[in-house]
Nucleic acid binder design. Sequence first.
DNA 1: TATGAATGAGAATTCATTCAT
DNA 2: GATGAATGAATTCTCATTCAT
Lengths: 237, 237, 237, 237
Amino acid sequence: MEPIAPASRTAAPPSRDTDRSKAAILGAACDEFSEYGFAGGRVDRIAERAGVNKRLIYYYFGNKDALFLAVLESTYADIRAAEQGLHLDLLEPVEALRRLITFTWRYFLAHPEFLSLLNSENLMRARNLSKSLRIREMHSPLVQMLDTLLARGRAQGIFRDGVDPVQLYISIASLGFFYLANNHTLSVIFGRDLRAPDALEERLDHMTDLVVSYATNRLDLAALRPVTARNPRAERP
Amino acid sequence: MEPIAPASRTAAPPSRDTDRSKAAILGAACDEFSEYGFAGGRVDRIAERAGVNKRLIYYYFGNKDALFLAVLESTYADIRAAEQGLHLDLLEPVEALRRLITFTWRYFLAHPEFLSLLNSENLMRARNLSKSLRIREMHSPLVQMLDTLLARGRAQGIFRDGVDPVQLYISIASLGFFYLANNHTLSVIFGRDLRAPDALEERLDHMTDLVVSYATNRLDLAALRPVTARNPRAERP
Amino acid sequence: MEPIAPASRTAAPPSRDTDRSKAAILGAACDEFSEYGFAGGRVDRIAERAGVNKRLIYYYFGNKDALFLAVLESTYADIRAAEQGLHLDLLEPVEALRRLITFTWRYFLAHPEFLSLLNSENLMRARNLSKSLRIREMHSPLVQMLDTLLARGRAQGIFRDGVDPVQLYISIASLGFFYLANNHTLSVIFGRDLRAPDALEERLDHMTDLVVSYATNRLDLAALRPVTARNPRAERP
Amino acid sequence: MEPIAPASRTAAPPSRDTDRSKAAILGAACDEFSEYGFAGGRVDRIAERAGVNKRLIYYYFGNKDALFLAVLESTYADIRAAEQGLHLDLLEPVEALRRLITFTWRYFLAHPEFLSLLNSENLMRARNLSKSLRIREMHSPLVQMLDTLLARGRAQGIFRDGVDPVQLYISIASLGFFYLANNHTLSVIFGRDLRAPDALEERLDHMTDLVVSYATNRLDLAALRPVTARNPRAERP
DNA sequence: TATGAATGAGAATTCATTCAT
DNA sequence: GATGAATGAATTCTCATTCAT
């Protein structure tokens, strides 16, 4: 679960000041871009937020595009690192799956900037991310982890055959991401506060049911349900 | 004095030119905003795309914000109208559910601008949409339709109890929306072309399996599968 | 005291509608220009205020400049006509002078638009007014009236010699005009509400004292003049 | 981050370049605004006149309004500073009064931009000036100076009682301000060149006579007052 | 490493005016 | 007389970026 360094180092060991300034800029940029999007984000404001001179941003990161990419990389690095700390291999397959779903949901909840940044980047058709040299390798462990989990479940006869780990991960992410990222429009069109604590719990239950009922072989589903249901409101036979 | 309100007047019927100009602006704005986002969209380019004088945009729509809202409303109106054409009430519950999933997926595929616009609007925390006076009422029929469908399925013992129509709709939308809207970053991080025809078909199957296996009572799932599988490559018993 | 027609008539007698529209435009333009100045005044708003189509303004008045001139002329006509209704010739000279001062003050108070329009026009160096063909002749009666009044007073030994009617009129106007037109800045810099009822009465008394004490014969004024004349070019002993 | 406040900073002494640029902008803005008024003044032209990049104007002053206020403040500061250099306390009361009148007249003559700027600001109802934090305190010395002068004159039995220094100052300013600021329209309506050297001299004499004859004790003034005073509150013998 | 000053290109928006009927 | 639609040229203001030190 060691955090991946947000940017490559040069030969000479950088001073503490350098690190502090760079980190301040990166944090400020993350806030700014997630608040206003890429096009709406202002370099001026980032400098102000970071408490550094605007020129320094260019000195360290080159330009706005590159700064955004650095923010993206560091954000991806954070979530992937956190996932590696889940130790899914130590849990029963179904429990591991639940844990991944719950983790993902909570991570999205705790990191709205991640959702926002991804939206921005997709609005730009991944213009920046596709220039990244590090991003691909950052994700193989995730796929590997899921693949192993699915194989274990299949071997135990618990998980169905033919589940693609990437497809499954995208679904797990989808169900939470869309709900949270599009929360604003959804709340307006449905006239409901989707951010209310009850609504959030309900959503996690719903997501978990969806994914688990899909991944597991059908007949024994009920048996796999935990005795203490997380959500007491939904009584099940 | 100037006709800023996007809604049509009752007194004098607007000339054909008016309609044509407004429609051209709306279409061009839709293209522009979905291509570049709201902050990145340029009024100049919209005028150019629409082949009208820039001033006319302000004459008809007031300002960039209001124009974007008009685009959003018209886009929502389109998808909601198309949904009403599905006539889910004429189909068996499970078939109706499949049809809705398929329709939603295909609509998203055919209308990338819808995804993009929603992303943009959420980046702005629904700043524009929350000013809309028409958007709420536009969505009650959708919820109504789903509610009716779920009730029918439950009455026939096919659908499980306690499924919230809004929750279900959000999930149906999620699975396709996230996949397509975030297609660019997902393709980069997983190193896969998620837009390949095969991948798209596979995704629809996966989504359908997920939702149907969740919504239906467990034991009879296999029996409900249509004889002619949509996707011949995925062999099922 | 007959009001002077604001604009010349053409051969054919204009319809009532024409008159009404023109008058509405003129009134609206007067309000608009006095509120925002010439450069700040908007043709759009004038049309809106007048409840007529913008095009009509051009139809009747040609352009913004000419419209402003028409407003100016009609405003001057109003005050000059009102002055002719004072019948100063029926009063004792000093009383007539007081009456003129009081009238001028009250007229300015009641017609802030007059002050504002003149300020605007002077900001433009009388660009519009100097094109007027009617304005000169509108003012000879005023000068004539004052000239007669001063002559009467002199003949009775009440008024001093050598008072120039134009100079005197400008002073009478000055004392009220500046106070009222510059009321906003004066109130700010002196931290006093110059528009308070008491302040207004006090001002009129002050103005009247100033002008009357100047115009009337006074025994000691000459004695107070310094030995060295103010104007060195005027011959000294 | 950008130095929008016009006041000088204390921390780091601004470089000469900063001072030069700001002064150039201020001077150019003064010229532009006094020539065209506020609404008619163009930021583009100000930049051109000042020989600086347009962006710099916003960098230093924030926006057009704030720039105009800075011009106003600096203009007021100039005249008030010049007044303090008159040393009225070293002169006999009447002579001091004459000197103030003459100074004011000549200052207005030499600084048409002052008149023009005040007119503009009043057209806007002192919208900008009322935001100023410095303007009030700039004017107490003037009132103080006049108050002292009037007291000295009264003590010597030369000046009449009950003269309000603010009222008197407004009158002194009025007589010159109106004549010069409205010179353009007055010249047109009276068909006279009020700017001719002779006319200017004559005006100063006239103004001086008016004010001095009012301020000094005069034996016959009361006798000329009508029996029915307009203002019953001000009891007169 | 750090920064205050400066900028060219372009952003949304406005305005008086005219077209076509 | 009257009007809704349309426009070219400005106008204020913004933005990422660079200069000079």
